[in-house]
């Protein structure tokens, strides 16, 4: 299958070929891929593409899957409205 037609990250519209291009350019870790192409930075926060990205790095560089670091998870685990945070902060005062 043409890697141009294999979508890895649906949120940010990143294809398998996009990943290959970045690998060739010298970007070889999840953290780097995510910064250039926004892989895993959309609303699902890599819950859909995360494992696939890890797997493609392992395959491309012929490394054991377990040695490929997952990306750095940051808060939040789900989106929260700023108004909701403000109301909670006001309640505490």
């Amino acid at each position: 299958m043409d890697p141009n037609n294999v979508i890895i990250c649906r949120c940010s519209d990143v294809s398998l070929q996009d990943l290959y291009d970045l690998f060739e350019e010298g970007y070889t870790t999840f953290e780097e891929l995510k910064r250039i192409k926004r892989v895993g930075m959309g609303p699902c926060q890599a819950n859909t593409c995360g494992k696939m990205v890890q797997w493609e790095i392992a395959k491309y560089f012929n490394k054991p899957l377990a040695s490929v670091e997952f990306h750095n998870m940051r808060p939040f685990t789900m989106g929260v409205k700023l108004n909701a945070i403000k109301e909670a902060a006001d309640d505490e005062e």
Partner: peptide, 11 residues
């Protein structure tokens, strides 16, 4: 109006 937007990450 920005208050209605959801925060998805902080760092």
């Amino acid at each position: 109006p920005i208050g209605e937007l959801r925060v998805i990450r902080q760092w």
